[in-house]
């Protein structure tokens, strides 16, 4: 294989793993909880910001990557108990409320930033040479971490008692409550988990980009498309959806210009949703 073919394949895997990583949190909050969380992008931004601040004050991006899920998860927990839980019966209200929260976070970061964008270096900045193609190690780390994280979450949800409680709560809260489990805190912790995953994703990907106020917001649209293509109701749907739009996007843009490939992928997503309105794993009704 020539170096450019290796790079091409690598790019597709890299872009796909990044989108899947970004979508993990959303798969829980939007996919499973069915909260149309418009501030999911800002959770990513807050995670990236944590990495940046940790680099500024402690000189370590790696520490920031470990702190990001804790910080953003706690933020999500507080947000659920103060705002989100009021809107479970009112999806339109949740859409507006979370959009407003996202706007406030974005504008706050905007006014607090001293520059248009700030650099966050990758914890591992070196590259490896595979068959003549020079590939950044950090992107490989992201691929492995994404794969491990997605499998772990799926296993926890499907094979553990905590996962069973979460799924039961989202499926039939009344039954779970009458079985003596606090659904209030199940909801809160599930939302916090979704936020923590987004924060972690933000901290992981910010070294590949730069920190700027719209970092999360610009990723929100592809994230939402992934969830819509993948389908609501289960964890695996949005993950498969992310792969389904990232792979053709990555392949196409190697042959045609990126603007046209973006448009084509959107058309593909629309057509797909027309024929599989319930997502990848469920037949349309």
């Amino acid at each position: 294989m020539s170096p450019s073919v290796i790079r091409g394949i690598f790019d597709v895997f890299s872009l796909t793993s990044i989108l899947v990583l970004l979508v993990l949190g959303m798969a829980i909050i939007v996919g499973m909880m069915k909260v149309f969380n418009m501030c999911q992008g800002e959770f990513v931004l807050l995670g990236a910001g944590t990495a940046y601040l940790s680099y500024q004050y402690f000189g370590s991006v790696l520490l920031g990557i470990l702190l990001a899920p804790v910080v953003v998860g706690f933020f999500g927990l507080v947000l659920e108990r103060t705002v989100i839980h009021r809107f479970y019966a009112n999806p339109q209200g949740a859409l507006l409320a979370t959009f407003a929260i996202g706007l406030v976070i974005r504008e706050t970061v905007q006014t607090r930033m001293a520059a248009q964008s700030s650099l966050v270096p990758a914890p591992i900045s070196s590259s490896v040479n595979i068959g003549g193609a020079v590939l950044p190690i950090w992107r490989i780390v992201i691929m492995i971490v994404t794969l491990v994280l997605a499998l772990t979450i799926a296993l926890v949800l499907l094979k553990t008692s905590v996962g069973l409680k979460i799924r039961a709560t989202l499926d039939n809260p009344e039954l779970v409550a009458s079985s003596g489990i606090s659904t209030k805190w199940m909801y809160a912790w599930t939302y916090a988990l979704g936020a923590a995953l987004a924060g972690f994703a933000g901290a992981m990907i910010v070294p590949l980009q730069t920190l700027y106020p719209n970092l999360g917001y610009e990723n929100l649209i592809p994230m939402f498309i992934a969830v819509m293509v993948g389908g609501l109701g289960q964890f695996a749907g949005p993950i498969a959806g992310a792969a389904l739009i990232a792979i053709p996007g990555g392949v196409l843009s190697q042959f045609i210009n990126p603007v046209s490939s973006q448009i084509l992928v959107l058309c593909f997503a629309i057509v797909f949703m027309r024929f599989r309105p319930m997502g990848i794993f469920q037949r349309g009704r």
Binding site: R7, G8, S14, R139, L208
Partner: peptide
């Protein structure tokens, strides 16, 4: 000659084309 959309957050495809 290649242009990327303003909202494209990851230009790794463009990078590969330049390198190739």
């Amino acid at each position: 000659e290649e242009y990327v959309p303003l909202d494209m957050t990851d230009a790794s495809n463009l990078t590969s084309k330049v390198v190739a």
